[in-house]
Design a protein around this nucleic acid. Structure first.
Lengths: 184, 184
DNA sequence: GACTATCCGGGATGGCTGTCCCGGTTGTCA
DNA sequence: TGACAACCGGGACAGCCATCCCGGATAGTC
């Protein structure tokens, strides 16, 4: 691979990451090319389709999330770990409009992109939920789809301040507690 | 207004209501015209823009929601009334993909459409929340944007069964309880 | 039954999108 | 330094979309 090709590829990727994070997945390929200072052909040569570009970005990003979520398995306090799990997802989505959109199912298939990158996002979610349920920190009738849906709500407050998102997480975490656990 | 014009207008409106409810706001004006059995020109004459068509539909739909929500003010049990409030919104969104999308902010501005129809949706939401907070049924730090965001989560489970949506409402309602109220 | 204002159909237009292709350029290596 | 393969730019293309327009049809009225 020629040096200039490598350079352009990196510039396109950086530009796309910034654009998707700030404005969401609606940014056109033409616009990304313009901002990166390259032609549209250059973009589509490195990334044949927009999905491929999205995938290259998401694979990396989701990978980091999966790693952090899996690390929580070692935590001694599973209640705290579960709140941390919600916080990781929320803050990631709040900081990245594209991730939040993909998570909400508007645009691209995030699970598929993560799988293509060698990460099983869905399994990581399921494992985190299962751990919390086994520790009786989360009600047994909740499923992964519930968590995902609720996370969309938290992420959607990305434009608000961090305290607002913390409140949203608190609401969700309290709502997910087992009904019989009436403690604070 | 000529009789055939009146007839066509009604057919377009009925078709659009069904299409938006079943498939969401992504259905094209061409497609609505085709299904209604009229030309695209006929649609755009009755409804100059797609927004106008959306507005004509939403104004009516949201009006009914606002009426039902306001009626809850008379309820003797405000805790029950608040859950009913969440249920009304959730079921409406679950039964109508277009409403759910508009509520989530993807597509059109629902508040603006409701206002154009003579209904203040935002005020109805705020009033319902305020009543619940004054009755100490909902934590004082929650705001209307919180409720809206959480409702998006509940609505998004429209394709699931009714029990799933009831569980989602339960999670949200529990999460919104005042922290000091540790009762079941 | 005829006349006119009204309304209809659907093709045309312009703007957006993602993707492809080719003439010109530039990095790389002998 | 020269030559060639790799790469670039951006115009071209096809597919969507909402919106506009005009020749033809039709409903309502005298």
């Amino acid at each position: 691979m020629r040096a200039d090709a490598e350079r352009n590829r990196a510039r396109i990727l950086d530009t796309a990451i910034a654009a998707f994070a700030a404005e969401g997945l609606g940014v056109s390929v033409h616009e990304i090319a313009r901002r990166a200072g390259v032609g549209t052909g250059t973009v589509s040569r490195h990334f044949p389709t927009k999905d491929a570009l999205f995938e290259a970005i998401v694979a990396d990003r989701v990978g980091r999330i999966v790693d952090r979520v899996q690390a929580l398995a070692e935590s001694p306090d599973q209640r705290e770990a579960f709140v941390e799990f919600l916080t990781i997802l929320t803050e990631e989505g709040a900081a990245n409009v594209g991730i939040a959109q993909a998570f909400a199912g508007a645009g691209y298939d995030m699970d598929a992109a993560a799988t293509a990158g060698g990460y099983d996002f869905d399994a990581a979610m399921a494992a985190a939920l299962c751990r919390a349920q086994e520790a009786h920190v989360v009600r047994a009738d909740a499923d992964v789809a519930d968590i995902k849906a609720l996370m969309v709500s938290c992420m959607s407050r990305g434009s608000a301040d961090q305290a607002t998102r913390a409140r949203m997480i608190d609401i969700v975490a309290r709502g997910l507690r087992p009904p019989e656990s009436a403690t604070q």
